[in-house]
Simulated scan of single mutants.
Amino acid sequence: MKTKKNFFQVLAFQFLIWGAQAQEVGQSPWGPEDEIGSLNMMTDSSRIQILSQIGSGQVYDLSVDYFVGMPSFHSLGDPSYQYWLTHTPHGTVVDNPNGMGEAMNEKVSYTGDAVSMYTHMGTHIDALNHFGLNGLIWNGFSPEEHLGDKGWKKTGAEKIPPIIARGLLLDVRALVDSFPPNYRITIQDLKACLKRQKTEIQKGDVILIRTGQAKHYEDAAHYLHQYPGISLAAAQWLVEEKGAMLLGADNLSFEAFPPEKEDNWVPVHTYLLAERGVMFLEQMMLEDLAKDKVYEFAFIAASLKLRGASGSPMRPIAIPIN
């Protein structure tokens, strides 16, 4: 009987440990219907405040080009970027699709094109439905109730508001000559970066991390190979201790691989999206900001309103502030 009692005591203790370690989706402090998470930190007042600090007409484009052969998640079965012409000047003369005749089509040239792509290609933002935990996404929304054949009814990319906020570049790449393969950026790295730049994180900031990986963007094999990314502890520090509203980086998938946890293959993704309701941008172009040592700026961006989608292309810009 004593042995049986001890067994159940050990088992109960183990369940307590498992419960403490279990990851669960977060319930939004902004209410049961919240679909944008930490972007609720942005207000009319905060937008006006950062816009009033703009001290330059110079604009930095923080997005990459889209082209056939660009880096992609094809290894996971997602489609690569495809581009094709639907109309060409010579083709319209031959086909006469508008019925206007040869003379008109020789005079007025016509070019049209189309693209097919995965929504998580190029510079893009991850919506809160991109990754979940234990069958739920942010704020407890379930696929059984909220996922239809044409996408999520909750937290889709169309719900993401235009973003205007203080941006801060953390040029971690400037700290080292090179990163070891699959390097995970630490809290100490971020603190050293802030000290080197003489900058401070403010609550509600957009934090952009430069790893230098964007220099290899035109070479997909190099760009995808053993790239550095943020560690889970560093992401937690930015969100929980420093109050970051939105994160971003210039690598493929924000975090590094292989995963740092045995029970979760994307622990940073699930922590940010499912547990904390914090969106982030991937595959950014931060080289010009770093070259000019522009660390503080007005961050302005908007995603495509792709209804129900788990992410969307985005073209963010940075304008230096006083």
Rank of each mutant, 00 (worst) to 15 (best):
T119D: 13
V94N: 08
M41T: 08
F67P: 06
D61A: 05
D34Q: 11
F73H: 15
H90P: 01
K107R: 10
T88Q: 10
G99M: 03
N98D: 15
Y110S: 06
P97D: 09
W84Y: 14
S38W: 01
V64L: 11
S75L: 05
M100E: 09
D78K: 14
Y60D: 00
P29Q: 14
V64I: 12
S109W: 05
M117L: 13
F73Q: 00
P79R: 14
S109I: 09
V64W: 10
P79K: 11
N40P: 08
Y110C: 00
Y83Q: 13
T88P: 00
Q82N: 11
I54N: 05
S116P: 02
M42Y: 01
V108W: 01
T88D: 10
S38E: 06
S80P: 04
S80M: 12
V25R: 00
P29Y: 03
S52T: 09
I54A: 04
P29A: 06
D78W: 10
N98S: 14
V93Y: 00
E35L: 05
D113M: 12
Y118T: 06
D95P: 06
Y110H: 13
M117V: 08
H120P: 00
S28E: 02
G19K: 05
A20V: 07
I54P: 02
T88K: 02
G101M: 01
E35C: 14
T111N: 10
T88S: 14
D61Y: 04
H74N: 14
S38D: 02
E102I: 03
H120C: 01
S52V: 00
T88Y: 04
D34T: 12
P97S: 02
G19W: 08
V64E: 05
P89S: 14
V64H: 00
G26Y: 00
Y81D: 09
V93A: 06
I36R: 08
F73K: 09
P71Q: 03
Q49D: 08
E106S: 14
Y118I: 07
S80F: 01
L76C: 01
L76E: 08
E106F: 00
S80V: 14
W84G: 08
S72Y: 05
V108E: 07
W84T: 10
P32V: 10
P97K: 12
P71W: 03
P32A: 14
P89Q: 14
I36M: 09
G31H: 13
E24N: 15
N96E: 08
Q23E: 13
W18I: 02
E33N: 11
